[in-house]
Design a protein around this nucleic acid. Sequence first.
DNA 1: GATCCTCGAGTTCT
DNA 2: CTCGAGGATC
Length: 672
Amino acid sequence: MTAKKGKPAKTRVRELREAINEHNYRYYVLDDPRISDAEYDRLFRELQELESQHPELVTGDSPTQRVGAKPAEGFAEVRHEIPMLSLDNAFDEVEMRAFDRRVCERLERDSVEYMAETKMDGLAISILYEDGSLVRAATRGDGSTGEDVTHNVRTIKPIPLTLHGKNWPGILEVRGEVFMSMQGFLAMNERQQAEGGKRFANPRNAAAGSLRQLDPAVTRERPLQFYAYGVGRLDGGPALATQEGVLKHLRDWGIPVSREGRVVSGIEGCLDYYQKLSDRRAELAYQIDGIVFKVNRLDWQEELGTVSRAPRWAIAYKFPPEEEPTRVLDIEVQVGRTGALTPVARLEAVSVGGVTVTNATLHNEEEVQRKDVRVGDTVIVRRAGDVIPEVVRVLKDKRPKRTRRFNMPRTCPVCGSAAVKEEDEAVVRCTGGIYCPAQCIQSILHFASRRALDIEGLGEKLVEQLYEKGYVRNLADLYDLDAEQLAGLERMAEKSAANVIAALEKSKATRMDRFLYGLGIREVGEATATALAVHFGSLDRIRKASQEELMEVPDIGPVVAGHVHAFFQEPHNNQIIARLIKAGLHWDEFTVSGERPLQGQTFVLTGTLDSMTRDEAKEHLTVLGAKVSGSVSKKTDYVVAGADPGSKLAKARELGVEVLDEAAFLRLIKRQ
DNA sequence: GATCCTCGAGTTCT
DNA sequence: CTCGAGGATC
């Protein structure tokens, strides 16, 4: 089937492209195809054939040209000229009503119209069209900078390479979510498994993984879908007045938009819609994690503006955390750094709210008894605070016969020493001390951890091996390691061994408070270590301090002072410290240097900042003399809220504590 | 002695 | 993030 007689190839090529694009539009956007798949394939093949006969007619936006070359050097960075905002969350009706009240008050209205849209559980991207052609696509990244994934996004069939219809803006940045339908995900996993490939835990990970493929040919085979939820840059085109209008226009221009969107009236409309969708959630072809409500009128959105990185005119009303039943395969007992025995439930793998859960802590003996969790039980698991798995309750009617109550062992499962419960304490502890391999290994890991000496590459598996071999039995042994010993271990080639040696070398230049914290003295965490360093100025003075002198440090009472004093009375500990210093560990005298303009002020950080990590922010504040605390109280002076803030923001509002967004925070630390 | 505020410690998964 | 417990305060 070559060019139809008489017609120039050029004309036929144009006709075919138009027909194919029209079909794609009807299929993906309107969900109302007018031709059969076979007919579509026929058109597509004809176009391919014509193009191969007339290569000069091939253009980048032809529907046959979805798969291009691999990018040479991974993913390039893309800056979003208009940042991709994140959304504030509401988790219950109360928070939802509070949002509506704030909106109404600011707009001085009794009731506002909202556009309600499903929140797809996928990956946010931005797609740029210039003169109607797709020219660039990028992931959201941190909101201001993402990765260039143009080569992969071009292979996603629902996303048009050229816009449909007319009147589209000369520059149009479409924003939306790439996701995978449940059915597509299951089929893909089955295929992957048959081919011995890796399975994905959930549709969201599968979508994200597929988009981050270097080879676009792989991405093309993944059943990715796309729904737009808004626009970024816009130049020309029709005047837009409402979010509803934005979505309608996007659809006219050939961009797929979810059909679940509705305009609802006021808070009651929102709650009603939420309830209806909640009931239908399981029937939907794809996973959603909540409903997004946006003030419909765009001029009102502008009036409301944006705080930090989240708009004041929109909110994501999340569905309650998923709860899933699963079976308890075993209850194991872990030994922590301080010897604390912690029971952990090993569970039959179950997907809860998007991740596979296999373990859940049971905290302590009392907790196991209270919930009466037994091996063989069917339990309900959920992710507390959306992160850490938690056993909610036991389904007693599903309990098999002849199960036994869980009892805490009276000896340490690792070293066999007696395990005892101190008076008035909830935890049972192994009395083996440094002779218990588990405690010893955990202490070494603590010393190497990020907030202590920050020795990169010294992870659990490695330390376990080093202990087994007898190379490292205490902190000082670490610095006697050589590359040869390391290279002889599993999963340790020359290169990684050299990296570990380099990391050890680098860690020798440290800070007194980090070192003190790294020693793992009972009850001495970061804050206490810093307080000690500031008060005494040198390690020697701490070592020589009496219990009474230690108690002069703010926030240190008799118990902590006792632990510190006892630690430095122990000759073994002093020997280790001497060896560490001899190996080259060093730090500057701990002096309170320069101006401390924020002296006496307490800050709490929550959410993610754009310009720095939370640790860096903390560092900045500490240098300026401020105290950075972990929880909000009325003694807190400022709460710094980044994107996706946690419950601390709500607490701050409740207590009337001043909240700084990132910009205000940066101004504050720059000003000093 | 009661109460509030913090800190420490342990925890999961990618 | 959550729990438990130490420290400060009234």
